[in-house]
Structures are given as structure tokens and as C-alpha cells.
Amino acid sequence: MSTFDETKADFEEEDDEFIENLQIKVDPGQSFMRLDKYLSHHLKNISRNRIQNAIDSESVKVNGASVKSSYKVKPLDDILLSLVKSGKIPKEVIPQDLPLNIVYEDDDVLLVNKAQEMVVHPGHGNPSGTLVNALVYHFGHLPSARDGEIRPGLVHRIDKGTSGLLVIAKNEFALQFLARQFADHTTERTYYALIWGEPKEPKGTINAHIGRGFKDRRVSDVFPDGEHGKEAITHYEVLKTMRYVSLIKCNLETGRTHQIRAHMKYLGHPLFNDAAYGGDRILRGEIFSKYKQFVENCFSLMPRQALHAKSLGFIHPTTRQWMQFDSELPADFQAVLDKWEHYLQYK
């Protein structure tokens, strides 16, 4: 059985909102000027390169429409500039020669299959051994956020304890282009999860706000009335039922911190062995010694939440073609599924 250590737990932000929006109302007396020149003149703390990448990736809109650098800004134009946010990672990250499972790589993007025990970025309790430490070592020139923050190529994250696919941007333009897709919720993300019990409906949508917990800041709470938190939408489908547990797939429309974990607990079906959300104890089935031992053996096989980022789809920054990737379930996840299948044969 996994444990939720209150002193060492790291609430790793997973929100896909790596974009900040800047709004500009052009002065009534402004003379006609090229858009790139206008923005560089008025936003002196933002480099011309970042502004150009934002324009090229259609992250700058004038009066609601994407425009080119050559667009002539005129009086009273409404300009919306969407830029990748600064990170919260320490400015100095120790490069570490850690193994990376690279699924795909070209000049613009890098796709990795993150191991379940690896944290994505350094933070409280995790100063080293993270994906970022490995990226800094293996790829010395990945783009970072502004102000010297080191967040090499990251446009989204997945929790420690969750395995699966992550896309990394290898240059500034790709960073801006991919971050925009995640912010606009136009990527495709499918997760596989093992949950306690069987949902009443074989497929459905959970549309309920998610935010940091009021009583426990290390977890996410669900606010169904929308009075707190941010909009969070999860589409789920039951793939297989195994008496007391079910294998489901979830497609994320948004990417809030711990979204699937919080939403499934809210639905009454916590993820198997998810210590933070109450899934690390027997929640379905009769309590007798052999069954209890069986479940504890499963917990030992997979000492983490049963969640895997199985597939990922996005538009390539340069080719503008849709790219779709899929991954196999990791060995510990598959072993637990096999164990439940075997258990059913003798019930």
C-alpha cells in the first residue's frame, strides 16, 4: 500500500495554462505602424524574438483575428497577445545523466514516455532526479521561459506517480505554438486508469470545477457549483469491468492539477492505490483474508496511482500536420490488470 507523506508531498502543478494574455487598446492618436514594430516599441520587457514567435504561431490577435507581422496597427485596435508564462522552477538546475525513454524526436519536438517514479520538475522535496534535470543534461539548448527561469521546453506536465507521454518543445517557436494548443484545448490526451467499482453509466462527462483544497492544499477539490476553482472537463469510458475494479479511459478537455484523480473521487470511484484521494484501501469487495491479501499484493505490484497518459495528439509546429502517438501500459500497470483477470477466473 502506498502512503501519502504529509511532510514530503509535492503538489505538482499540472494545469495546461502556461499562457498569459496581454491586452492592448491602441491609442486614438496612434499612426499606422507594422504590428511587430508596434509591439516591440510598447512591450520593451519582451524580446522581439518572443513577439515574432507569438505572431507566427497565431498567438497575437487584432480585433479577434490572427494577423501577420506586416499588419498595420491603427487607432483603437484591440490587440490580444498570448505568451508562454514564466516558470516557477529555480534558475539553477543541476544537469543529470538520467535515462529518457524518447518516443519521437525532430528539430522542433521531443516526445518522451515518462516513468512513473519521475517528477517532471524540481520543487519542494524534489531538487534533483526530475525530468527537467535530465533535459538540461541531454539537451542543452531547449527554450526556457523568460526572466532566466529554467523550464526547458515544457508545455504541459503529469504528476509524479503517473506514467506516460509528454511533448517537449525544442525551440522558442515550438514552445509558443504548442503552449497555445494546450491553452486552447485543441490537443488530444487519453489516459488509462484503474478505478474502484463500476460507474453507473458506461461512458459520460464530468464537468465540475477543480481547485486547490481548502482543508488540504496538497490535493485538488471539486466544486460542482463552480463557486471556486477553474473549469475542468473529463470524458470517460469504461473499457473493462473486473468485479470490484474497472479499467477506464479518460479524455481531457482541460488539464487541471490532478484532474482525473479528483474527478473520479468525486464520482465515487477513486483511482486504485491513489493515496492522496483515498484509493489506497479496499473500497469494493468483501473483507476476508484471501481477498485482502490479494489486493495488498496488487498494491505492492503498483505502489502508485493507477494512471497512465496513454496517447497524445497535437499539430506539429512546422509541418502543421496532426501527429498522434500511443504508448503501451507500463509493466506494473499491466501486471495488476493481469492479476485481476486471473482473480476473476476463480470467482
Rank of each mutant, 00 (worst) to 15 (best):
R256P: 15
F223Q: 12
T318C: 11
D332A: 03
K310I: 00
L43R: 04
L175I: 10
T162S: 10
F294T: 00
I102L: 12
F214G: 06
Q324G: 04
R256H: 05
P224D: 15
D332C: 02
V245K: 05
E6N: 06
T241N: 13
I168E: 14
L111K: 00
D216Q: 04
S220G: 13
Y236K: 00
H235Q: 11
V238H: 09
P122C: 02
S327G: 03
N207D: 15
D108C: 08
I55G: 15
G153N: 10
Y104V: 01
D107H: 01
L22C: 07
W322A: 14
G164A: 14
I150N: 14
I24A: 10
F173N: 09
E237G: 09
E13L: 05
D36E: 10
E105K: 05
S144D: 12
P330W: 03
L111C: 08
R50I: 06
R320V: 02
R157S: 14
M118W: 03
I282K: 05
E117A: 05
I195W: 08
Q293D: 13
F333Q: 05
I233Y: 12
R151A: 14
G255Y: 04
D36Y: 00
I287L: 14
Q176R: 03
L135Q: 04
N251T: 08
D78N: 07
A275R: 04
S31H: 07
M33G: 10
E296H: 01
K72Y: 02
N63L: 09
E117V: 00
F182A: 14
S86Q: 06
G213Y: 05
R189P: 15
R256F: 08
Y277A: 11
K68Q: 11
T186V: 15
V62P: 13
A169W: 06
E172L: 14
R180N: 13
E17Y: 07
L39D: 12
A309W: 00
E14F: 05
H124A: 09
N251Y: 02
E12T: 04
L98A: 13
R217C: 13
G29F: 08
F288Q: 09
P152T: 01
E188R: 02
A134G: 07
A9N: 12
L165W: 09
I24H: 04
